[in-house]
Simulated scan of single mutants.
Amino acid sequence: MERTDIGPRYFGGKLGYNHAVLLAGPQRWLVVSGHEARDAEGAIAHPGDVCGQLRLTFQRLDETLREADFALRDIVQLRLFTTDIAAVTAHYDVVTDVLDAAGCRPASLLAEVAALSDPGMLVEIEALAAR
């Protein structure tokens, strides 16, 4: 697969996102539904803690990707939904650190919504991966 990053944007020296990602010849695609910060019993973890929820949500996303023989670096599109965009943008280094460590350079969206499926959720992340 050949990949071309288009219009990269950096935050604090780390890639925040690309305006677009051009792929030529991907063999496999994985469409990943919204993930959230749930503990082993299925309850929302880290109530009121956007950093904790971001970290655990990325961990859960990574687990799903690995189950399908993908990795975070294979994500080409990422959508982050939050009920508190000010809190997420204030701690966006959590996102850029995870993406940087994984070599992940997605096209992405960050949007504030009125509510998510569980009142304790501050963040939900969905993704599209390709190899």
Rank of each mutant, 00 (worst) to 15 (best):
H19D: 15
V98F: 04
K14H: 08
E67M: 10
D118T: 09
A40D: 12
R38E: 03
G48M: 11
R131W: 13
E126G: 09
V21I: 11
E36H: 06
Y17W: 10
A130D: 07
A45S: 13
A43L: 11
R105H: 11
V31R: 15
R3L: 14
L109P: 00
E67V: 02
E112I: 03
D84T: 12
F81P: 02
Q59N: 07
D39R: 05
Q27C: 14
M121I: 06
D93W: 08
I125Q: 01
R73K: 14
Y92P: 00
T82S: 11
A71S: 12
L72E: 00
L23Y: 11
T64S: 14
V21G: 01
L56W: 00
R28V: 04
L61M: 09
L99F: 05
G25S: 11
H35E: 13
V94N: 05
E124M: 06
P47K: 06
S108V: 02
D100G: 06
K14R: 14
T4H: 12
Y92N: 04
A114E: 14
L110V: 12
R9H: 15
V95I: 14
A45K: 03
F58R: 02
V88G: 01
Y17S: 07
V95S: 02
S117C: 13
A101N: 08
A37I: 01
L15F: 07
V95E: 01
V31I: 13
L22K: 15
D100W: 06
T82P: 02
H35C: 15
L122E: 00
L15K: 07
V123D: 00
A114C: 05
D5A: 08
L54E: 02
L128H: 05
F81I: 04
L30F: 11
L23P: 04
Q27Y: 04
E36D: 09
G7P: 04
Q27D: 12
A45C: 07
S33Y: 07
L30A: 10
G103T: 08
A127W: 00
A87T: 07
A43H: 14
H19E: 15
R9M: 15
R38L: 10
Y17G: 06
T4F: 08
A102E: 06
H19S: 12
T96I: 07
F58A: 02
Y17N: 05
L78Y: 01
G12A: 10
L15Q: 05
L15W: 04
G48R: 07
Y10W: 11
G12W: 14
T89N: 09
R105T: 10
V50D: 03
L54F: 09
S108M: 12
E63I: 05
L116H: 09
A101F: 05
L109Y: 05
T96R: 02
D69S: 15
T64F: 06
M1C: 13
V21Y: 01
T4N: 10
R131H: 11
Q53C: 08
L56V: 03
L22M: 13
G13C: 10
V113H: 09
A114N: 13
L22H: 14
A68G: 08
L122V: 04
L99G: 01
L80M: 11
G103Q: 08
L65C: 03
V88Q: 03
F58S: 00
T4L: 07
A68L: 12
E67I: 02
G52R: 03
C104K: 02
V113C: 09
D97W: 03
